[in-house]
Computed example of a mutant assay.
Amino acid sequence: MDLDELRRRVARLEGRPVDTAAIPVHPALAGLLTPRAGGVYGVDAASLALTLVSGPSAAGAWCGVVGCPDLGLEAAREAGIDTDRLVAVPDPAELWWEVVAALVDALALVVVRPPARVPQRDAARLAARLRTRQCVLVVWGEWPRCDGRLSLVSSHWSGVGHGHGHLRSRRAVIEARTDVTVSRSREVWLPGDLGQLGPVEQPVAAARHEQPDLQLLRGAS
């Protein structure tokens, strides 16, 4: 039995819609992770969240971002995101759940950064809503259950010399895990010298000295 057939059987048992279409992904993630409409996908870095958004956005989908005040529009554009079709709510305060639910109802993909630990029952209610609306949720942080997760295993910036120069490119290793514990990894540019995101043509061993994730963001933590 292949993975798609397993999903169909589980969907029937749970009363979920059987046909969950795969959403477009950026070439950097092609073959590494295949997000599906109605699913929840976790990331541990803002750069990975932006890369997940860039696929549907480039295909014309409307996307949203909730609770990420440090996310910059310039960084989003560099990642290939159409900012004219991006709805950003940097600080929803006590209306976090209401804002997320409203965007899930209207958009194709929503990125969230939870302000606190999310209870299992609340995550389950939102998961049912995602399946009904066929929206993808990308969680930057912890979530009770994800259909897949992207992690930044290592990251190495280049371009800075001895007291001179500027950061030009970042070579990173990304690991993907799915809900059936399949694990894959790939070395990618986030970004390359020309600002491009994509797989490294001739991968090398991951750098042992990891540097802080600058995430294509301006001032993000």
Rank of each mutant, 00 (worst) to 15 (best):
R129Y: 11
W157K: 04
L33I: 10
D213I: 11
A93P: 11
S47W: 14
D82A: 08
P35K: 01
G195T: 14
E142F: 05
A108R: 12
T51I: 11
P203R: 08
G60Q: 05
G198N: 01
A102W: 13
D44Q: 10
E78Y: 05
R8D: 08
H209K: 15
V136E: 07
R121V: 15
D19M: 13
G198W: 12
G192D: 15
A22Q: 15
S158T: 06
V173A: 11
D105K: 04
P69C: 01
A75I: 13
D4M: 13
A176R: 11
R129P: 13
R131Q: 06
L48G: 00
V104I: 09
L126S: 02
V87L: 08
G15D: 13
I23L: 10
S151C: 04
A172K: 02
M1N: 03
A220H: 10
L86S: 14
Q134W: 07
E201Y: 12
A128K: 13
Q134C: 06
E14F: 09
W62D: 06
D91H: 11
L152V: 00
H164F: 13
A207E: 13
G80P: 13
L150H: 08
D147I: 07
A30R: 14
E78A: 10
V100A: 03
W143I: 08
T181K: 12
L13N: 00
V173H: 15
E78I: 01
A49F: 03
D2R: 14
V89D: 01
